[in-house]
Nucleic acid binder design. Structure first.
Length: 578
RNA sequence: CGGGGCGUAGCGCAGCUUGGUUAGCGCGCCUGCCUUGGGAGCAGGAGGCCGGAGGUUCGAAUCCUCUCGCCCCGACCA
């Protein structure tokens, strides 16, 4: 492709709207343009990269035995009702009524649609196992789109769904997809790690995420400094600071003091209480009142920790979990928000994090406006119904596997694989007949990849101060030929000849034939980051040589024009090895 | 939804506090000359409903009210 004939609107200055480096560079390199918040157009260069990634995904999916389908973007809202996910998606769901007043949504995902389809088409175990995939635009009205294509309202997703007759079959399908994902991210030359994950709104149990470690990512990952333990913070656990009560660690009851009510005006946060009473947060017990769809519970945790609601949901087996509203809190505790405590609570279950198990003479709310209790003790002053691990891991925690130190890092979620089980197939009555003629729900797995995110995370992890540095596998072009002073007939002719040679060899070549000054063209070349660069200029005039260099390296070599193809092949092979 | 910030030429910004001819600057763009190894130089030029609507005023980019859009932080999030 000749640069003069395509559309690559590069920008010298950083766009004001962009904060993170991938967003800035994608705009500056002329890959994308914003249409409105969280909605982007892909320009020729960006679209080529998108297609590179899509092709790799498609090839690896097919290699893993998955079959491609294409599902509608429009879906009936009652499908989401059927699976119970209308509430889960809530305001994120983009929906409208069609002319017949039928409620219709732009698909945020396709579990329901595929389950309905497969439920209709698959009747016997002989048709299973089956894994289908599609590459489709998904729509979510994100509360706050940000970071360009990293979190947008419409985005491209590859989603695959496996259908099996047994758990062992599901396990096989799952590990095939898991392996395919590794190959996909390897081939895209992504920097990624696999972490244990919470399955969240998807339902299901086992789940892994493929994450690109990156400061601008909005997921938090817990990574062991010694062993292989890696987990999303939603799922991560750590060696408990205080183990559950047992014979050896039980606090010495003889030192228990008697609870005492103290006046603590306007101190509704842990920090306020801590400084007012001069008690460290780790000797204060925080009490949170939660409500699920069918009960209200009190949750206790050490003052310096936070409740991990994903874990709490798991403990309660609740689909829905929210902090109780003020009215509920007053009804249950008798006091206002900010002064809750476990002493005297009746009729609500008390679930405590392990972190408070061995605390002694601690402070809590007094369930009374502007009062706290000090010298409170478990068992003597109140009973805990259940001790559980319901806190977020924090810096300094120890690995649950090897007890070495854990690190917290940021990451971008590139892919997520789930073992779903029968959640959707039961809701949609997607059953098959087994060899004995007995019906059973099909067992599902689902597997997603954020296509746009692969691109952005690659840039996050592969750029310098001048621009993008593409890995060869997803670069928009393999080679950029820069003709300096194209008004010189010798130069333009030489560059044109090399361009044609390389195209004949099957390379994807961008030919910068624009009549611009050298500096301008070099800056653009660095910005758009094509891996192999050939410059036809001064040395071509003087000695018939062209200059070849890799975007990622400083050094360049001069080769006679006739050796160009051979030299490029050598470089191409070298940087294509994964 | 809460907090903060910003809408002036394709992009980046000044002007607004203290209202006053024709609204500026840099980059980019067009024409010509010149130049050709790291975003050159000279000369000429095009491009604006100052986000929108109301109001105050003799007069509004500037002051007031409302509204729309965008960005950041938080809550939220397969």
């Amino acid at each position: 492709m000749k640069w003069s004939q395509t559309l690559i609107p590069t920008l010298k200055e950083e766009p004001a709207e962009a904060e993170v480096v991938s967003h800035k560079l994608m705009i500056r390199a002329g890959m994308i343009r914003k249409l409105s918040s969280g909605v982007y157009s892909y320009l020729p260069l960006g679209f080529r990269v998108l297609n590179k990634v899509i092709n790799i995904i498609r090839q690896e999916m097919e290699k893993a035995g998955a079959i491609e389908v294409f599902l509608p973007a429009l879906q009936p809202v009652n499908f989401l009702e059927k699976s119970g996910r209308l509430e889960v998606f809530g305001e994120d769901l983009i929906q409208f009524k069609d002319r017949n007043a039928k409620k219709t949504a732009l698909g945020p995902t396709h579990e329901e649609v595929i389950t309905d389809l497969v439920g209709n088409c698959v009747t016997t175990y002989k048709q299973l196992p089956l894994t289908l995939f599609q590459i489709q635009t998904k729509f979510r009205d994100e509360i706050r789109p940000r970071c360009g294509v990293l979190r947008s309202k419409e985005f491209l997703m590859k989603d695959a769904y496996s259908f099996d007759t047994s758990t062992s079959g599901l396990n096989k399908s799952y590990s095939k997809m898991y392996d395919a994902y590794c190959r996909i991210f390897d081939r895209c030359q992504s920097n990624y790690m696999v972490v244990e994950a919470d399955s969240g709104a998807m339902g299901g149990d086992v789940s892994h995420e493929f994450m690109a470690p990156c400061d601008s990512g909005d997921d938090l990952l817990i990574v062991c400094t010694e062993c292989s333990y890696k987990s999303n913070i939603e799922k991560a656990s750590a060696v408990q600071i205080n183990a559950p009560l047992d014979g050896n660690t039980e606090p010495d009851k003889s030192s228990f003091k008697t609870p005492e009510e103290v006046h603590t005006p306007n101190t509704s946060t842990i920090n306020d209480v801590s400084s007012f009473l001069n008690i460290k947060p780790d000797n204060i017990v925080k009490t949170l009142i939660y409500s699920t769809s069918d009960e209200v519970i009190a949750v206790l945790i050490r003052g310096d920790y936070d409740v991990n609601e994903a874990k709490l949901k798991g403990v309660l087996g609740a689909g829905e979990l929210n902090l109780a509203d003020n009215g509920t809190i007053e009804k249950v505790t008798g006091g206002p928000v900010g002064f809750c405590g476990p002493v005297g609570l009746k009729e609500v279950k008390i679930i405590a994090d392990h972190s408070i198990a061995n605390l002694m003479n601690f402070a809590t709310g007094a369930n009374k406006q502007d009062y706290h209790l000090i010298n409170v003790n478990i068992d003597s002053d109140f009973k805990v119904d259940q001790f559980e691990d319901i806190r977020y891991v924090v810096d300094g925690d120890k690995c649950p596997k090897c007890e070495k130190e854990l690190n917290i890092i940021h990451g971008i979620e590139l892919g997520h694989v789930f073992k779903l089980g029968t959640k959707y197939t039961e809701a949609f009555n997607a059953t098959y007949l087994d060899s004995k003629g007995k019906g059973a729900p099909i067992i599902m797995g689902c597997y997603g990849i954020g296509v746009n995110r692969i691109i952005a995370s690659t840039i996050e992890n592969s750029h310098d101060e001048n621009g993008i540095i593409w890995p060869i596998s997803i670069a928009p072009y393999h080679i950029l030929i820069t003709a300096l002073n194209p008004s010189d007939p010798d130069i333009i002719k030489g560059a044109q000849t090399i361009y044609e040679w390389l195209i004949t060899e099957g390379f994807e070549v961008l030919f910068d034939d624009r009549d611009l000054r050298p500096g301008f063209k070099f800056k653009d070349a660095d910005l758009i980051g094509i891996p192999i660069r050939i410059t036809v200029g001064k040395s071509f005039k003087s000695s018939g040589e062209v200059e070849i260099k890799l975007r990622k390296d400083e050094d360049k070599c001069l080769v006679p024009m006739n050796n160009t193809v051979a030299e490029v092949k050598k470089l191409f092979d070298a940087i294509s090895k994964v």
